[in-house]
Structure formats: C-alpha cells, structure tokens
C-alpha cells in the first residue's frame, strides 16, 4: 500500500466541492424517489487512514448499514455509504413512511440501498463531469452488521489500494430531521492521483 501524508486544504476543498455538486443532484433524485423533500449537504471532506474507518461510527462492533459498490472505468476503486444502524433506521422510516422507530422493512432496506446507489452515482457523475474521467458504478450490495466486519471485507477486496480513503460527510435533511452519514471513496492504488491531477490540484 502507498504512503500518503495527506491532502492539502485546497485538494480537500476541491473534493468537497465535487461532493456538493454531487449531493445537489442526489437530493433531487432522492426527493423524487420518496416523494418528499430531501436535502443534502456536505459539511466536510477528509482523508482517513483505512484502519481508522470504523472509528467514524464508534468502533468495530458498532451496528451499521453499509451500501457498497465497485467503480470501474478510467480510475477504479469502490464506494461505501456507511450509516450507524440507528441513523439508517431513522432515515429509512422518514423517507418511506414519514414516521420514526421500529425495525427495517424490506421496502426500507431497498430505499437505503437505492440511497447509497444514488449518492455514489451522483458523486461519481459530478467527478466525471469535472475531470473527464469515466467512472462507472456497479450495482450496490447491502449489509447490516458490525462496522469492523464491513470494513474488513472491503479492506481485503481492495488490498492493492491506497492507505487512506476519502470520507465525504453527508448530512440528510428529511422532514426537519438531520441525519449524518459517511460516503467513503476507496481509490485503488494510483486512482486518487489521477483524479486530483484532473481536478487541477495535483501535488506533483
């Protein structure tokens, strides 16, 4: 795995801006899907060491929902929408039934899966448009389990990858409730440099 000291504030700003544009498009798609106003914002983008990803949601044993997909094209990697289970439940209930509480229904699970797909798709689309790099998302997979187990699965899948991942904090706003999630980009080795280069903020 490659060593990376960190991105400059300028580079992180550029990636956050991509997140903002992507989330604008995603909000429109989500609102249409659930027939309610869904707003999205990106308070922060940061580079997090792979091994620290579980800490974003409170440790390896925290129950989470993960929506995971592969990226292919001119740059490759994978993307994960990671939500604490209680946040995921709240989000799903608000989007599907407009209420809170209770276990996830099949429809709510599908809604979360689709949410991950829309977010990742919109982000990749924004990135593609700004850079001219073709980035194609796969069909998403869904899991509800311990954070550590989900991260460890991805770690193994992408073992030829960067040591750091890009975390795009994403805040959903549905029916006056704010719910925090993490959209995480796991770039394959070299892919982050390709993207940063095309955004005009390469370190080299």
């Amino acid at each position: 795995m490659a060593e990376r000291k960190g991105l400059t504030p300028l580079q992180l700003d550029a990636l956050r801006e991509v997140g903002n544009i992507g989330s604008g498009n995603a909000a429109v798609a989500l609102s249409t899907m659930v027939d309610k106003k869904v707003m999205l914002s990106v308070p922060r983008a940061s580079l997090v060491p792979l091994v620290k990803v579980s800490d974003l949601v409170g440790g390896a044993e925290t129950p989470v929902v993960g929506v995971y997909l592969h990226i292919s094209g001119d740059a490759s990697g994978s993307m994960l929408l990671l939500l604490e289970e209680k946040s995921a439940r709240e989000l799903a209930h608000l989007m599907v039934s407009g209420e809170e509480g209770g276990e996830l229904t099949t429809v709510e699970q599908s809604a979360l899966q689709e949410t991950g797909s829309i977010l990742a798709g919109s982000y990749l689309n924004a990135l593609s448009q700004m850079t001219g790099i073709l980035l194609k998302p796969s069909v998403p997979g869904f899991a509800m389990d311990m954070a550590g187990a989900i991260i460890d699965f991805i770690l193994v899948e992408i073992s030829q990858s960067e040591d750091y991942v890009l975390v795009i904090e994403t805040e959903f706003d549905v029916l006056q409730h704010k719910i925090r999630g993490h959209l995480i980009l796991f770039p394959d080795l070299g892919s982050l440099d390709i993207i940063l280069g095309r955004l005009g903020v390469s370190t080299a």
Binding site: G66, L69, S72, S76, S138, F153, E157, Q160
Partner: peptide, 26 residues
C-alpha cells in the same frame, strides 16, 4: 471468513492485472 456483500455480476472490479481477490476470499 464471511462474505459481507454480494454484488450481482461482479467479476473483476479492478480490471487490472494481478491476483484478483474477489468475493470468495473469506
């Protein structure tokens, strides 16, 4: 040794040469 995600139709997500690890790694 579990398999946490199943992505339908996924074969080689990376399209790069080298050992492909894939979904059966567990």
């Amino acid at each position: 040794g579990a398999c946490m995600f199943t992505i339908p139709g996924a074969k080689n997500p990376k399209n790069v040469p080298g050992p492909y690890l894939g979904m059966q790694i567990g």
